[in-house]
């Protein structure tokens, strides 16, 4: 293929054609060209002719991302220094007042605590269950393709729809779960009134929704584990459990790391389930939900909400930087 191309090219006139012919002959075509050649290429009339096309293709997307993804990060910081009611034409400057309020208010400390519990429980739960399911799905069992798809499905379904389904199940009086508990002679816990139980309930549903994602990613990583390593361990007399913990799990560590950080980021941003299952955030107000409630939950405190969002973003930023630096190191592990 490349030979024909090169032949045809060299037949053609014009300096740019011969250059691309030379490039076609290069075995790794996608490598960064050497500095000098690159400059020459950029200065050539032909590449300058490409600039407007590039901008035409790229600018709409870049402008949208700049306007609705990057700009808010900055305006948020500005808004967070204001005492400002949403919809009001006036606002007063309070400096770091909103942050001071957040970090001294016992309620927001409760919010941080709830966020921590929710994040640790959902990330830990979904990853451990996902890992367990992946080991099962990795075995040549009948119907595992179907099972894999079923287990993954909740991850792509609407959080609002899922929340409604589980409200219907958890309802202490009319719900399925209550009926089962009564069947065993117990009484259903008050899932919605008790703040601790409400948080437990939302955590359970969140894990239900996200375990499949962890399982499928772990499964893909497990299938990449070289079979000869597992066989070698078996020959050395290691049992299945020993092989799993001493051979397979260490090889999965880049995946574990990836999942850990993406799951933490996702859990910190959880919203749909919390909003639909516990609208008042009684015991389930995480940082994300607090930012929403403060601005749109009746308080209309735009400035304070921006401060909460900025704190949340700060946490996400730290997590992302950790991911980028540590993950990079871990990826070369195997």
């Amino acid at each position: 293929m490349s030979v024909t191309v090169a032949d045809a090219e060299s037949a053609g006139p014009g300096s740019s054609r011969t250059r691309s012919a030379r490039r076609a002959a290069d075995p790794p075509p996608r490598q960064k060209p050497a500095g000098r050649r690159r400059t020459a290429e950029l200065l050539s009339a032909r590449s300058r002719r490409d600039f407007p096309i590039f901008l035409l293709l790229v600018l709409p997307n870049v402008l949208l991302i700049a306007a609705f993804t990057y700009r808010p990060l900055l305006t948020n910081i500005y808004y967070s220094t204001l005492n400002w009611t949403l919809g009001s034409p006036t606002a007063s400057k309070v400096g770091l007042g909103n942050y001071r309020e957040f970090f001294t208010d016992p309620e927001s400390l409760q919010v941080l605590w709830t966020t921590a519990i929710f994040t640790v429980a959902t990330v830990g739960g979904a990853m451990i269950l996902g890992l367990g399911l992946a080991t099962v799905l990795n075995r040549p069992l009948r119907g595992r393709t179907f099972a894999r798809a079923t287990i993954f499905a909740p991850f792509v379904l609407s959080g609002v729809g899922i929340g409604l389904v589980w409200v219907f199940i958890f309802d202490p009086v009319t719900g399925l779960l209550g009926a089962i508990i009564r069947g065993f002679g117990g009484t259903s816990p008050q899932w919605f009134n008790d703040p601790k139980l409400a948080l437990t309930m939302v955590i359970i549903v969140y894990i239900w929704k996200n375990t499949g994602y962890c399982a499928v990613i772990y499964l893909a990583a497990m299938q990449a584990v070289p079979a000869d390593l597992v066989e070698a361990a078996a020959i050395d007399g290691a049992g299945r459990v020993r092989t799993f913990f001493s051979v397979v799990l260490p090889l999965l560590s880049p995946t574990t790391f990836f999942l850990l950080l993406t799951s933490i980021l996702n859990s910190l941003q959880a919203f749909d389930l919390i909003r639909i299952m516990t609208p008042l955030g009684n015991g389930t107000t995480t940082l994300m939900y607090d930012a929403y409630l403060q601005a749109f939950g009746g308080y209309n405190r735009a400035g304070y909400s921006a401060a909460v969002a900025t704190i949340l973003f700060g946490i996400l930023l730290v997590m992302t930087v950790v991911q980028l630096t540590l993950l990079e190191r871990k990826v070369h592990y195997s």
Partner: peptide, 19 residues
């Protein structure tokens, strides 16, 4: 610029985008 945007959660932008 694109890659970093991938990691900025849309939820954080709620108030500024609403306004």
């Amino acid at each position: 610029f694109m890659l970093v945007a991938l990691m900025v959660p849309p939820q954080v932008a709620l108030v500024p985008n609403y306004i």
